[in-house]
């Protein structure tokens, strides 16, 4: 049964000359998609999970609010705080902040501003509803509860 041995042995070696190119391609992909974090998070962030997620199309319209327990408890206390840009703000400063964010947008887009609220899952509804009240006052009514996807079973 020498049937299977008929083939002459060919040289088997994977050409590796294209390897750097492939690696470079991957490298460029990650370089382009990467977003280096511009802001240091001052509050804890463990986003809640949800299933009915929607994606926003226009990134330029989104402003972020981070809500959670401060990381530096000795300095800021353990009550949930709001972080906008790089600083912790108080609830009553939200209107001012929203107006600043609106000024960055064009005239036509100002009323389309969307606030993405990245709140820690440990936060209670009290502070959340205070923030929502301020956002209503500031007339920034599009609000997104940022959350991560959950695998449905």
């Amino acid at each position: 049964m020498g049937k299977f041995k008929k083939k002459t042995k060919a040289e088997i070696s994977i050409p590796t000359s294209a390897l750097p190119d492939i690696i470079f391609m991957l490298l460029f992909f990650f370089m382009v998609t990467t977003v280096l974090r511009e802001q240091d998070l001052l509050v804890e962030q463990k986003l809640p999970q949800a299933t009915q997620l929607q994606k926003l199309e226009k990134k330029s319209l989104i402003s972020y609010l981070f809500v959670g327990k401060p990381k530096n408890v000795s300095l800021y206390g353990s009550e949930p705080r709001i972080q906008a840009n790089d600083v912790l703000i108080n609830t009553k400063d939200i209107v001012l902040w929203v107006n600043q964010e609106k000024d960055k947008l064009g005239e036509a887009e100002r009323d389309q501003i969307t606030i993405s609220m990245k709140a820690d899952r440990e936060v209670k509804m009290g502070p959340i509803s205070d923030i929502q009240f301020e956002l209503r006052e500031a007339d920034a009514r599009k609000l997104m509860y940022a959350s991560t996807g959950k695998v449905e079973n």
Partner: peptide, 22 residues
Amino acid sequence: LIFFLVTTTIASDKGILNILPP
């Protein structure tokens, strides 16, 4: 490549949309 792989956080702008009342 490994450096970018580690530092990358693919920005997730996903969430539940809600329109607040006026």
